[in-house]
Design a protein around this nucleic acid. Structure first.
Lengths: 142, 142
DNA sequence: GTATTTGCAAAAGCTTTGCTGCAAC
DNA sequence: GTTGCAGCAAAGCTTTTGCAAATAC
């Protein structure tokens, strides 16, 4: 295990938010100042292959970059609010059951799953509702 | 409705495979030869916003591009085989129930969902199994 | 000593944007 | 006539790659 990889793994593990490559690079450099962007990309690819981390798109709310998080025992899904950008994580046995059904019916050996949901969080949905009440004539294509 | 948009919508609707922007552009040009790549991107963004099409990553099996398909009444998920690249589509009431649970528990107004699963299809899993039996000593790092 | 990993810099891939002219209503 | 749409080309952002030097075992 090289120092750079250790630094990257620890950074991902201890991160409180979802990290894209740029943030991951910046934070990892606090441990290993000479670490390079290419190393981040290569290491992330490696860890993905080992099943140690998951790659997320988070509905491309902020461009096409990817985010990374350590793989947890129970898969969780990500709810992305298109209005405020908030990411909600959610795990439920129903998801685990669904995965089992997918694997069984399709005879498919699942290695990774990525379930992302886009829409409005409760507070943004409430705000929108209010807005609609205040302008009762939203126009012909309302 | 402009001719270009009509051409793009019809192309997506009648497509038999998942289209990325390059393929979509090529196929749409058979209807509207002067159509431009920028128009494809702008139209696809528009149709996404209207909820008429879904955007897929297909597990980034072939680079970072996106794929598009018309939104169907019942959402389906995509199984991507990392070995042969095959994409399997699958719909099940369990997925619809999961979505309802997600929406109810999180008070989240779902607009789009994207469930992608990566792994090995049955035939690739079988091939791999065979390979492992033939080389019983895969080395210290398995 | 050999194999693997890294940094660097350049390139590649996909997507977005500014602007001018054109089309739609 | 006004508003929005399309084409073009250039730029933008993220990711990948070739290669020589450095590191790990």
């Amino acid at each position: 295990m090289t120092a750079q990889r250790r630094a990257l793994i620890e950074t991902i593990q201890e991160a409180t938010a979802h990290l894209d490559v740029a943030s991951l690079l910046m934070q990892a450099r606090e441990r290993e100042p000479r670490i390079n962007r290419a190393t981040v990309y290569r290491t992330v690819e490696l860890l993905k292959g080992l099943g140690m981390i998951d790659e997320l798109d988070l509905m491309h709310l902020n461009g096409e970059k990817h985010y990374y998080e350590v793989k947890t025992q129970q898969d969780h899904l990500h709810l992305a609010c298109f209005e405020c950008g908030q990411i909600i994580e959610f795990a439920t046995p129903a998801f685990e059951r669904l995965k089992q059904e997918i694997a069984a019916i399709n005879q498919f050996a699942i290695q990774v799953t990525r379930l992302e949901v886009g829409g409005l969080c409760s507070s943004c949905a409430a705000k929108k509702e209010k807005r609609l009440q205040q302008e009762p004539k939203p126009g012909p294509r309302g």
